[in-house]
């Protein structure tokens, strides 16, 4: 017995070390996916050329020009958006104590889309940079509405109530959005690619506008992981441990809206990344958010860029928008979660 007690710390240490090593591997994996994203497309480029386009640009090379002007922005946006959506999803799941929470389920994406389409229709908005502010406003209002309705009543928040509220608000906003689009063909044409969710053809300017928000949101969420751990024990337990649950939730909500609003503005509504990534990560590293969130950063990048690359390959030479690919991959994932016993019972 005493020998066992002495040996106790070892497995813990090894676990911590192996989690650290895993994180490093994930970072390497994300980097590799970035390189692939520079290489693959309707025109395949060699690794040497794609790296040269960044570090040693030769304006004469057609390949390098393609990489520099099209794929570098696309990859950068993919990295920023993938990381932010995944961390936002993890934060939401912890703060709402709801395995189904995610930017698309809570209607943030639909709210942001609606705000942007409205702005384009009424305000003759042409600069994608201005999208950001409308995306924030729409996302914030919608998520507040959905969360308010989903948690009202004596039962508190249940996964099903929250998901239903999100779906209905999304349906309502989508129906208004499509009414606006029917009234005005130009808006439809301007928006239909954006509203499918895509990394392609985006202006780097948009990324620069959104980037500060993405960074602030993601860093803030990573710093909050200890609080999120305690919050996941339940409201009463967390408050009995001396936590201001309302304050922590409020901060988490603001961070989530920063991340998703900026992500939607930069890449359009991309569903299910935020829902799926934290679940995948939890299977590997367990429920500790101090590990879940950092892992989510890299796995989010891998998943989103991976989906984007898949969309480029599947129907060559044309492309499938990444939002469609993630939804097609992510919706079965939602069904899988729903089939886990605990969720439906809650």
């Amino acid at each position: 017995m005493s020998a066992e007690v002495v040996q106790r710390p070892l497995p813990r240490l090894r676990l911590r070390w192996s989690r650290g090593a895993g994180l490093f591997l994930c970072a390497l994996g994300a980097l590799a996916v970035c390189v692939l994203s520079l290489r693959i497309g309707s025109l395949d480029v060699s690794t040497a050329d794609s790296l040269a386009a960044i570090f040693d640009y030769d304006a004469g090379s057609y390949e390098q020009t393609v990489v520099r002007s099209l794929r570098v922005p696309r990859t950068l946006i993919g990295v920023a958006v993938g990381a932010a959506l995944a961390v936002a999803g993890g934060t939401m799941q912890a703060a709402t104590r709801n395995p189904l929470a995610g930017p698309s389920i809570l209607g943030v994406s639909a709210g942001a889309s609606f705000a942007i389409v409205t702005a384009i229709y009424f305000g003759q908005l042409t600069e994608p940079m201005q999208y950001v502010w409308f995306a924030f406003a729409g996302g914030l209002a919608t998520s507040a509405l959905v969360y308010g309705i989903g948690t009202a009543g004596a039962g508190g928040a249940s996964p099903v109530k929250l998901a239903l509220a999100g779906v209905i608000v999304s349906a309502l906003l989508t129906s208004w959005t499509s009414a606006l689009l029917l009234l005005d063909r130009e808006t439809l044409d301007a928006v239909r690619f954006w509203s499918a969710g895509s990394l392609a053809g985006r202006d780097l300017q948009v990324l620069w506008t959104a980037l500060p928000f993405l960074i602030v949101g993601t860093t803030g969420a990573l710093l909050m992981s200890h609080q999120l751990n305690v919050l996941s024990l339940g409201d009463d337990a967390a408050r009995a441990l001396g936590m201001h649950t309302g304050r922590v939730r409020g901060v988490a909500a603001v961070l989530v809206v920063l991340m998703t609003g900026a992500a939607v503005a930069a890449a359009g509504p991309i569903g299910f990344v935020g829902l799926a990534v934290p679940h995948i990560v939890r299977v590997v590293v367990g429920p500790d958010y101090r590990w879940v969130l950092p892992y989510s950063v890299f796995v989010g990048v891998m998943l989103l860029l991976g989906a984007d690359i898949l969309g480029r390959i599947l129907m060559r030479p044309s492309e499938i928008q990444v939002g469609i690919v993630t939804a097609a991959v992510g919706a079965p994932f939602l069904i899988w979660i729903a089939r886990q016993r605990r969720v439906a019972d809650v």
């Binding site: 024990l233 339940g234 009463d236 337990a237 009995a240 939890r282 367990g286 500790d288 605990r342």
Partner: peptide, 16 residues
Amino acid sequence: LLSQQSPLPEAITVED
């Protein structure tokens, strides 16, 4: 305080 239990996140261990 030990409140009436709420469901825990999956796979959380006793030590956690």
